[in-house]
Design a protein around this nucleic acid. Sequence first.
DNA 1: ATGTTCTATCGTATATTTACGATATACAAT
DNA 2: ATTGTATATCGTAAATATACGATAGAACAT
Lengths: 105, 105
Amino acid sequence: MAYSKREEFTPEEIWIADVAKAISHPARVAILKILSEQNVCMCGDIVELLPLSQSTVSQHLKELKRVGLIKGEIDGPKVCYCIDNEIFNKAKQAVDELFSRVCNC
Amino acid sequence: MAYSKREEFTPEEIWIADVAKAISHPARVAILKILSEQNVCMCGDIVELLPLSQSTVSQHLKELKRVGLIKGEIDGPKVCYCIDNEIFNKAKQAVDELFSRVCNC
DNA sequence: ATGTTCTATCGTATATTTACGATATACAAT
DNA sequence: ATTGTATATCGTAAATATACGATAGAACAT
């Protein structure tokens, strides 16, 4: 009962799936939108804008950081989050490529 | 301990998250690629191309059908799957819109 | 030194996802 | 009628995700 066949797919398929998983929760979509509007943003500000506890928001931020879509820089006691444009752009291109390839339009 | 705060986000955020969840597994990315190459495809063909059992592939197809990215038409004892171009295009646009909004490039 | 503020992590409960084999169903062919 | 083929669904086990409160750690202010 070998578990998780994830590794039996191509690196490209795994990478796209990872990016998609990162944005597969409305809270994380909302976080990306907030960061794009504010450019740079404290974790606490995000918590205030979402109907979730601080620890839950922190977990969502961690998930976005895991694939590299965002990064956090420590600023005294606070942490400033922002989009990691380089990786985000790579993710955008990979997803674009899949969508364009699949779509007949 | 109210569970799942999903419904407290905007319909757009939920829709994007749903689409992303549908493509958040490498097997489903692979299925979309197969369907795009073959245009129309029997379920059994997909099973042969993936390192997964028939029942597992069937579940993945169901997940893609759930959000509408693909549709299956019954053809005798077989089922022919194909991309649902209308919904797929809507999904593409929604994801594009998010990516473009967030990305500084 | 002490307290305050901000964030991450731990512990935990519940829900969902992923995977499979077995079974049921639906149609075609014999 | 029976057999074979194709697919979906059921039952189930293990893994992951989602959510929270409590706690820990780090930096600043007093």
